[in-house]
């Protein structure tokens, strides 16, 4: 780890102040996991004390299996050129996260997007409710349980002319008389 001197130093200073888990992922990349209530203080600390003044990106991942959303804040220090990725998990059935657009203005855009696409609430967030979508009355579309393919089938009509398409596997199966048992079907080509 001697190669990652600067990275380890930042990580240590974060660990001294906050209760976090973290590691140096690779060159210039520090990844930490924090509790949702600590995120804004960590970001403020990084911005004001450690020179991470550039908010690179905020991302959101739906981990539906664990019933959680993961928010990732990526901040960058223009002097040391290090990147810190702050991960936090919030409950999927109670999707509320602290608004950080007072720290970085452009976070407002991300938060409006996540409000619309994932249904995460950011108390105190200013800005039009409709950002990307218009008259949307379904579940937030970026959630994993929103089936976009089904939505397309329900919403749009298909042009006629393609009904005679066949499935290769089925065509062969029919010709040869093979019977595929149900437990094997999920391994067939889709």
């Amino acid at each position: 780890m001697s190669n990652f001197k600067k990275e380890t130093k930042i990580l240590k200073s974060l660990k001294d102040v906050f209760e976090i888990k973290g590691s140096v992922k690779s060159d210039k990349r520090i990844s930490i996991k924090a509790d949702k209530k600590n995120v804004s203080s960590i970001l403020l600390f990084l911005k004001n004390q450690k020179g991470f003044i550039h908010l690179n990106h905020i991302s959101c991942v739906d981990w539906i299996e664990q019933n959680e959303f993961e928010l990732v804040y990526i901040v960058w220090n223009p002097k040391t050129r290090l990147t810190v990725m702050v991960h936090t998990r919030i409950k999927r059935d109670e999707p509320v996260m602290e608004n950080i657009d007072t720290i970085w203005d452009q976070a407002n855009t991300y938060e409006r997007e996540f409000r619309e696409m994932f249904g995460i609430e950011f108390p105190g967030l200013i800005g039009a409710k409709e950002f990307i979508l218009e008259d949307w009355d379904n579940i937030p579309p970026m959630r994993k349980d929103f089936n976009s393919q089904q939505y397309a089938i329900d919403t749009f009509s298909t042009r006629p002319g393609r009904e005679n398409a066949q499935n290769v596997r089925e065509a062969i199966q029919k010709r040869s008389g093979e019977e595929i048992p149900d437990f094997a079907k999920k391994y067939s080509r889709d």
Binding site: E130, F131, I132, L133, E134, P141, M142, S148
Partner: peptide, 12 residues
């Protein structure tokens, strides 16, 4: 105001 070109690429 955006939303004229949303194609849901990330979902796709």
């Amino acid at each position: 105001h955006v939303g004229y070109l949303h194609r849901a690429f990330e979902k796709l």
